[in-house]
Amino acid sequence: MSDTAPILALKTVSKIFGKGDSAVYAARDVSFALHSGRTLALVGESGSGKTTAARLIMREYSPDHGQLLFQGAPLGKADARAIKAYRSSVQMVFQDPFSSLNPAHTIRYHLERPLRLHQPGLTGSQRKAAIAELLTRVKLDPAIVMPKYPHELSGGQRQRISIARALAVNPKVIVADEPTSMLDVSVRLGILNLLNDMKAELGLALLYITHDIATARYVAEDIMVMYSGQIVEWGAMDSVLDNPQHPYTRLLLSAVPDPDRRFSDAGAELDQIETIRRRAALPQPEIRQVAQNHFIRPMPEDGR
């Protein structure tokens, strides 16, 4: 999606859960690439496979078909050293800042651990300085926050800790799975600004997964829309949002809360929800380019 070589890519990856009649394609022929200094947003249906894509990147699942490429090289049969490098290069930030931090440990402990693992050479005071730097980076006051326990912080502060922890190992890629859905509007904007700054200052590549398409536009240059395991439309953010071509993308965008439209005057797409759902779930192998950086997988006609 840009001229530079991608840092990380999925190439025609499929992931199937279950067997026979109950088999679910959580990923069907999924391809995308992450680039340094850019954010790619992943939006779509609940249960379409967004978290599965994140888990494939985190190597919690291995693909049933297809490949994961890191800096151009397939990771499948990589040696132990390459895998270790990969693990510290790719970090994840989760949706729930409550359950991803251990209530029994201080903030200092949460940040000390990754530093010990990835920079074992640091002395105690160097490590403390590194923690202070990380906290400052996520706009928290180290002196106040370091000795605190997670329950003594607000949701937004906790999410900043999760981000600081991810940054502790100097990653190249951050996967954020609904990092702000538990936070309210004013706090949410602070976290989104923080992600934007990280991208610009540290040259990180970001995958931002969300149900909130307006926040996706706030942080990402490119967007992918997922339905039933398939990426049905992708490309430059404003091209996709202003000129959506796949029926599911249109349905999704027509349902985004809009204070200018009362519920009583629902759009035409909403009358066809079931038809669109049925057809968008069928395999859509063909790819069609609709603009310079804008693609869809056209839906097959009914009955084929």
Partner: peptide, 17 residues
């Protein structure tokens, strides 16, 4: 409807309305 996609959210709230 916080954890749901906007299409499902819309269906539920439209129904309530």
């Amino acid at each position: 409807t916080t954890a749901l996609d906007v299409v499902v959210q819309r269906e539920i709230l439209q129904r309530i309305d």
